[in-house]
Design a binder for these strands. Structure first.
Length: 897
DNA sequence: CCGACTACTTAGCAATTAGTAT
DNA sequence: ATACTAATTGCTAAGTAGTCGG
């Protein structure tokens, strides 16, 4: 890697290349909110419980979803529901008040449209409306169609999902497990009741579906119907295996400084900083550059200004962007000259060239095991273990407080691997007679010692690690220094699969250089193997792929673990942008696509009918494709792999989905569907057992092959991206009102939440959630007491008397009635804010906003909205996201998805 | 048309760090 | 300064999907 090489300035984030241009796209108008309201349908019925977290989560989920506001959205959301809805988020002002339950909210939103499907495409941006409809998720459309529409509103559509509360059982179960569960439950209830749609009142979107949320817990056992839930895990704390941890690469930079970006730098070369080289230039700057530079200033500036955007980067991009429309899409490809791709090249190993030159230093290995000598007890007696045996025993000991520890599958798998290391005639004959407490205690003690280190010691340690890792953190691709995503080889440990994974507890052996294949430019020096005496398995020079290194997964040797560039790299940024552009194309074609599959709901060919119905579900519910899985994986499903038992038909035309999806997260949602879809599902289920495939004629290849006929490069996952982005765009445009920045941020979060619900992105309730809520409630109570006291003092002050003694026994200052009144008002405002915060907290406890922000919502929607409404982008995107979405920063303020 | 490979994105939770409150 | 939270970052599992050979 030498430094010299680069000339390019590097822009860290990637801007370099692309940018702008494309963005422009349509300027369209943004519409802002106009109406907001619509009606809403109620839907409500439901309640959704949401799951709680993990465990719970599963169960809980409710069914509801709501469609996004406008319509676009998909329909419903799955589980979570309930809570979410609530109000808090909403903006304070108006809505604030209530907070309806999540479910409702969404729904309320309502989409407008109703029609849906049928409609033709229209699309184009221009009108949103039309489009919208099309765009919108079906749900929305449905409603219309279907009937339902309960409410009025415009579109009412929504599917009605209802979420039923149902699942109580599950819920209960969960509860039992944790407190959380309770909450969930409650939540639902409460939520439901209370709020229902909250805020939104205005909005109201329909929500189609809404989920039910119930919470069941899935955890382990499954609850209800289906199966078992998988996700049990726990959350335990301790645990973890080893502990290694390392600093983060990211910032390493310290040293550098960079130039920022590009430009300046240009001259400078930056280099990677590796050690290797030297240093000079390098390092330092660079890194941070990106970050730094960006972080601070620029962004902000950009934002604010809005329009201009200039701020930041300048580059061409800006310009381009500004331009408005412009071609955009097609261009993209063009743009980057960097890798020229052909037009359609997509990311994946498509055989296209991904780079011309690639330099990097390979990977860093975890330190060798350090023996601690603490003995475990076997049948009460200390046992001597070899370092290797001790290492594995320690991995297990350290997991004592996790849920895995007591799972038979985990213990069996662990024992199976450990006993091989113990050897045939070892005194330890079974796991249950082993007492790992001494090691666990040693581990806890070590942890405490670390915690007690002085700040200075910690800093030194951190710096040492950084110095050691710095060279691995960077790669130079086509002359541009880029961060490497995961340059640390995974340390050995016990496999922690999610859900009921058949391999949980198996030993994940240590990876050595001879397991690793390196990919590097032909001209670049081959990274030196960091472990003396060992060598890489292989060194390749394949520029049709983006990985820097890989090794076979020790748990499943057929699979690989890759080392890629970080998300902030230009390579990843480009691919990200292409992903969103594809979704925007889908937006343009969605009307036709919906019309096409609607027509096939009654096709005589079963395969075609299944394709039509599956596509409808993916479009409307944002389900994942559902690839086939092996028996040695947790059994979870997606659309194509749904089992008959995962879908219940509820007359006259509702479907209740209940299955474990990716990561064994439960999806529970009851949604109203087109009568023909309802009928078709019944046909697909006829004569089959619960565990048979619902879509027996289908798999993801067939489905995607069909989708490609409708639109080039279209695949099932594009619908999720489309639904998420269109929902965000719609909600932001409809819900944003004049107001201060915090109010606008609330609107954004509400929209983000809607998307998260649609995508069923969940998180476990934090261990301290209950305590936190109680604490807040306590504080609110204290404030109320204060008000009482102040009222009395005010009364006395008006009569010219001095205040009573404070509850703390101290004398209070003599205040004027005016001052007291002001104080009362302030305190009341404080109480209201706290109550809103508490509600929000409750609503959001199982909703994970981050996943959709990182993977599904086109960042240009967010950036453009921030520019239009003078919201600093830093309020929405953290440092990592700013770096990842550098390519979207100079989007035209009028950009619409 | 399959299924084995292969490459790359998406996901939740744990560990860290930053930020506040005490 | 300390204790707790809240927010971020890291980790790596679990998906999607393209390609290739038969």
């Amino acid at each position: 890697m030498a430094t010299e090489a680069f000339v390019k300035p590097v822009v860290p984030n990637g801007h370099d290349g692309y940018d702008d241009d494309d963005e422009d796209e349509m300027p369209l108008v943004f519409k802002r909110s106009s109406n907001s309201n619509n009606n809403n349908n109620t839907s409500s019925s439901s309640n959704r419980p949401r799951p709680n977290n993990n465990a719970q989560r599963s169960s809980s989920i409710g069914s509801t979803k709501s469609p996004p506001p406008s319509s676009r959205s998909p329909l419903t959301s799955p589980n979570r529901s309930a809570s979410s809805g609530r109000s808090s988020l909403m903006k304070p002002s108006s809505s604030s008040v209530k907070s309806p339950p999540v479910g409702e909210d969404r729904r309320s939103v309502a989409s407008k449209e109703r029609n849906g499907l049928g409609k033709a495409p229209s699309v184009s941006k221009s009108d949103d409306e039309d489009d919208s409809e099309d765009d919108k998720p079906l749900s929305a459309r449905l409603k219309g169609d279907t009937k339902q529409g309960s409410s009025s509103g415009r579109g009412s559509s929504q599917l009605p999902v209802q979420k039923s509360n149902v699942r109580p059982q599950g819920v209960n179960d969960n509860n039992s497990r944790n407190r959380d569960s309770d909450e969930k439950v409650q939540t639902k209830t409460n939520v439901g009741a209370s709020s229902s749609k909250p805020i939104h009142s205005d909005q109201k979107r329909p929500l189609v579906n809404h989920i039910n949320r119930n919470g069941l817990k899935p955890k382990i056992e499954g609850n209800s119907s289906q199966g078992p839930a998988k996700r049990p895990l726990e959350k335990g704390n301790s645990s973890n295996q080893s502990s290694v941890k390392r600093p983060k690469p990211s910032e390493p930079a310290r040293p550098v400084k960079i130039e920022q970006g590009s430009r300046s730098t240009a001259t400078t070369p930056d280099r990677k900083g590796n050690n290797l080289e030297d240093s000079k230039p390098l390092r330092v700057n660079q890194v941070e550059d990106n970050s730094d530079g960006d972080d601070h200033v620029p962004i902000a500036s950009r934002m604010s200004s809005n329009k201009k955007a200039s701020s930041a980067k300048p580059n061409a991009s800006m310009i381009a962007s500004s331009s408005r429309t412009i071609a955009k899409k097609p261009n993209k490809w063009v743009k980057d000259s960097k890798y020229s791709k052909s037009s359609r090249s997509l990311p994946s190993g498509d055989g296209q060239k991904k780079w011309k030159t690639l330099e990097h230093n390979g990977v860093i290995f975890p330190p060798p095991y350090k023996r601690h000598g603490v003995k475990i007890l076997y049948q009460g007696k200390p046992v001597d273990l070899t370092p290797e045996q001790e290492e594995v025993a320690t991995m297990f000991a350290v997991m004592r407080e996790t849920e895995y520890y007591n799972k038979q599958m985990f213990r069996d798998n662990f024992w199976n691997d450990w006993r091989k290391i113990l050897g045939k005639n070892h005194v330890i004959k079974n796991l249950d007679d082993c007492d790992f407490s001494p090691i666990y205690e040693w581990y806890m003690q070590e942890k405490e010692i670390k915690k007690q280190m002085s700040a200075e010691e910690k800093r030194i340690l951190k710096e040492e690690k950084l110095a050691q890792e710095e060279k691995y953190m960077w790669a130079v691709l086509d002359g541009v220094r880029e961060k490497v995503g995961n340059f640390r080889v995974e340390p050995p440990g016990l496999f922690r699969g999610r859900g009921e994974h058949p391999k949980m507890g198996k030993l994940k052996k240590r990876i050595r250089p001879c397991d690793i294949t390196i990919n590097i430019g032909k001209e670049a020096p081959v990274p030196e193997c960091p472990i003396p005496g060992e060598r890489w398995k292989e060194v390749k020079h394949d520029n049709t792929v983006t990985w820097l290194a890989f090794w076979n997964d020790p748990i499943n040797p057929k699979e690989f673990k890759y080392v890629f560039l970080a998300a902030s790299s230009a390579l990843k940024g480009l691919s990200d942008k292409e992903k969103y552009e594809k979704a925007r194309k889908l937006k343009d074609r969605i009307g036709h696509i919906r019309a096409a599959y609607t027509k096939d709901f009654s096709n005589k060919d079963v395969t075609k009918r299944q394709i039509a119905v599956a596509t409808y579900l993916i479009d409307k519910l944002a389900l994942r494709a559902g690839n086939e899985k092996d028996d040695d994986e947790a059994d979870t499903v997606g659309c194509c792999t749904l089992k008959v038992g995962n879908v219940d038909c509820i007359p006259p035309n509702k479907l209740k989905f209940d299955f474990l999806g990716k990561d064994s997260i439960q999806y529970v949602n009851t949604v109203e569907v087109e009568p023909l879809v309802y009928k078709a599902i019944g046909q697909f289920q006829a004569g089959k057992s619960k565990t048979d495939d619902l879509f027996d004629e289908l798999d993801t290849s067939k489905l995607n092959a069909h989708l490609k006929e409708l639109m080039p490069a279209l695949t099932a996952k594009v619908f999720r991206t489309y639904n998420a982005s269109i929902t965000l765009d719609d909600m932001l445009s409809k819900e944003t009102r004049d107001g201060d920045v915090p109010e606008k941020i609330v609107v954004y979060q509400q929209a983000n939440k809607e998307v998260a619900i649609i995508c069923n992105h969940q998180r476990t309730v934090s261990k301290s959630h209950g305590a936190q809520v109680e604490k807040l409630a306590l504080k609110i109570e204290e404030l109320r007491e204060q008000i009482k006291e102040l009222d009395i003092d005010l009364d006395r002050a008006k009569k010219g008397r001095t205040p009573l003694m404070g509850s703390d026994g101290k004398r209070k200052r003599n205040l004027t009635p005016e001052a007291l009144e002001k104080k009362i008002m302030q305190t009341n405002a404080k109480i209201e804010k706290m109550e809103r915060d508490m509600q929000t907290k409750e609503d959001m406890k199982t909703v994970a906003l981050g996943t959709s922000k990182i993977n599904y919502m086109d960042p240009r929607i967010t950036v453009a909205w921030c520019k239009r409404h003078d919201v600093p982008i830093e309020k929405i995107f953290n440092k990592s996201l700013l770096a990842k979405f550098a390519w979207a920063m100079d989007v035209d303020p009028e950009f619409r998805f």
